[in-house]
């Protein structure tokens, strides 16, 4: 298999397979979670839960108070840089937008490529810092297992290979193929790991927020 065959394979059949597994896993796992349902609140509530749930979805983007921020300043900051960076790269890099246009049928303006380049560097650095922190912080080291490190790798690789491809390190078509392959790897493991939080965080926040709002607490 030469690099052209490889590139065509990752752009074609492999991507199709990855998409299928990704979507399949998502719909399966989400249904599995939601179908467990919860009992209705029978106490007289102070506020309807629905709005409160949505409020928490947004409110939780920021730490609830200064103390919470100070105690986790590093992970919050680095976590934000990484998450924002990742989504900016994913959603605002023109070639990616063209991909989404194909899928969704509409597109949006992208960022100038040098800006994406800088953001990519920041994202990579944030990810590396988060990894070091995970290996060194007593709590994180204690909590982390194979999955945590594995997920880090599959998240890191697309960013790294994307950057290398973009800057034509080594051989562009090969780098591009590796980049797409790493994205496919990410998509395949996605529904079966903690990466699912990408789709469940707002469900979790909503559940917590709605119950708290019913009790009259803004969380």
């Amino acid at each position: 298999m030469n690099y052209v065959d490889f590139l065509l394979w990752v752009r074609g059949p492999a991507f199709q397979i990855a998409t299928a597994i990704f979507i399949f896993g998502l719909s399966w796992r989400l249904l599995e979670i939601l179908s467990l349902s919860r009992k209705p609140e029978l106490a007289v509530v102070r506020e309807r839960g629905i709005a409160g749930g949505f409020r928490t979805i947004f409110r939780r983007f920021l730490p609830v108070d200064d103390n919470t921020f100070q105690r986790s300043a590093f992970i919050i900051t680095a976590g934000y840089i990484f998450h924002l960076g990742f989504f900016i790269i994913l959603l605002l890099f023109v070639p990616h937008i063209l991909f989404f246009r194909e899928f969704f049928g509409f597109s949006w303006p992208g960022l100038p490529t040098p800006v994406i380049g800088i953001i990519t560097i920041m994202t990579l650095l944030a990810l590396i810092a988060l990894l070091i922190n995970r290996m060194r912080h007593p709590v994180l080291r204690f909590l982390s297992g194979f999955e945590d490190y594995f997920v880090w790798i599959v998240t890191f690789l697309p960013v790294l290979t994307g950057y290398m491809a973009f800057h034509h390190f080594f051989h562009y078509p090969l780098m591009l193929a590796l980049h797409i392959l790493s994205v496919e790897l990410l998509m395949i493991v996605f529904p079966f790991t903690k990466l699912m939080h990408t789709f469940t965080w707002f469900i979790s926040r909503w559940y917590t927020g709605s119950r708290a709002a019913q009790k009259g607490v803004q969380v």
Partner: peptide
């Protein structure tokens, strides 16, 4: 070039 070469909407 960033568009997959196979149909994916239907697959999805």
């Amino acid at each position: 070039l960033s568009v997959p070469t196979r149909e994916i909407v239907g697959t999805a």
